[in-house]
């Protein structure tokens, strides 16, 4: 495809890109700009003061508890990514290789679970994990002792993984589905076992999907709010809760804005690093693309 030279006064171009530009301006750039501006103000007694100073940023960088929460958010998100990928790999593999006949039904079920209201799902999990809940009822029925994991980091992680795992399932599924079946056959033909084939062929060729899913899950888990609060019992708040507390309870909008920017920065830096890593392994990906285009 050749790129045509287009003048900015071109009416067609303006009308074609206009709506998107306006959308981006209205819903992304302007709010972002306002957040940046807000972070240089201060509040006094629930009222915003237009002070234009660095006090909030000094506070952000000097308060240990903020970075403790940011670190917790990062480690929880990283763990969530690992768990989502580890859980999704066998599911995606099974969808493609073992359950061809039920594939669509299973996909629809996953989509339904995915689309169900997050608030409802999270509170549903409370009913399951609760001391007197479904899980313990089942454990008692099969004669095992009750486990009390509601309001623990484990419960938070269960909630996060449950809510985010569809992203990795689908990106990895799409990636695996694109792998030429003959590559798998070629590995079998060369004498490889199923596991060896998965390890040497399917897994490396699913990398684009694993990367895409991992990034989605990571960025989304930086912002999880309900899971640590409702399932985790709120005693180990994560970044989103810190921001909510600052905006809503403390009515310290400049602090909330600054913390929001910190989380955005953490997300952006992670994406940049992931992009670098992806670029390094892109030889294989590019190959795959070329192979496809033949």
């Amino acid at each position: 495809m050749r790129v045509k030279e287009v003048n900015w006064s071109n009416k067609g171009l303006l009308s074609a890109t206009g709506p998107l530009t306006i959308m981006l301006l209205l819903f992304f750039l302007i709010p972002f700009f306002m957040t940046v501006v807000l972070s240089f103000q201060s509040t006094q007694y629930y009222r915003l003061q237009w002070t234009w100073d660095l006090d909030i940023w000094k506070e952000v960088f000097s308060e240990y508890f903020i970075w403790r929460i940011m670190w917790r958010t990062l480690t929880m998100s990283a763990l969530c990514v690992v768990l989502c990928v580890v859980i999704s790999l066998p599911i995606a593999y099974a969808l493609i290789n073992r359950m061809k006949s039920m594939e669509n039904n299973v996909k629809i079920l996953i989509v339904f679970a995915f689309l169900a209201d997050a608030v409802l799902k999270t509170f549903g999990w409370v009913l399951v994990l609760d001391k007197s809940g479904v899980m313990n009822g089942f454990l008692a029925w099969i004669g095992l002792p009750e486990i009390d994991i509601l309001f623990s980091p484990t419960a938070t992680m269960i909630g996060m993984v449950y809510n985010l795992v569809p992203y990795t399932i689908f990106t990895i599924y799409l990636s695996m589905d694109r792998i030429d079946r003959d590559l798998v056959r070629a590995a079998y033909d060369a004498g490889a076992s199923r596991f060896r084939t998965f390890w040497e062929v399917t897994l490396p060729l699913s990398k684009p999907g694993i990367f895409a899913g991992a990034i989605l899950v990571f960025v989304l888990s930086l912002g999880v709010f309900l899971e640590p609060k409702v399932m985790g019992g709120g005693t180990r708040p994560m970044a989103a809760e810190l921001i909510r507390q600052s905006f809503e309870t403390r009515v310290n909008w400049p602090l909330g804005a600054a913390l929001t920017l910190v989380v955005i920065a953490i997300g952006a830096i992670t994406l940049a690093i992931a992009g670098k890593i992806a670029a390094r392994t892109s030889a294989a990906n590019a190959t795959l693309a070329q192979e496809d285009s033949k």
Binding site: D180, D182, L183, R185, A186, A187, D189, A190, E200, V201, P204, L205, A284, T287, L288, Q290, E291, K294
Partner: peptide
């Protein structure tokens, strides 16, 4: 004791 050469070759791209 057989080996296959596939129609689309099936070389491992990675």
């Amino acid at each position: 004791p057989t080996r296959m050469v596939f129609q689309k070759l099936a070389l491992f791209p990675h």
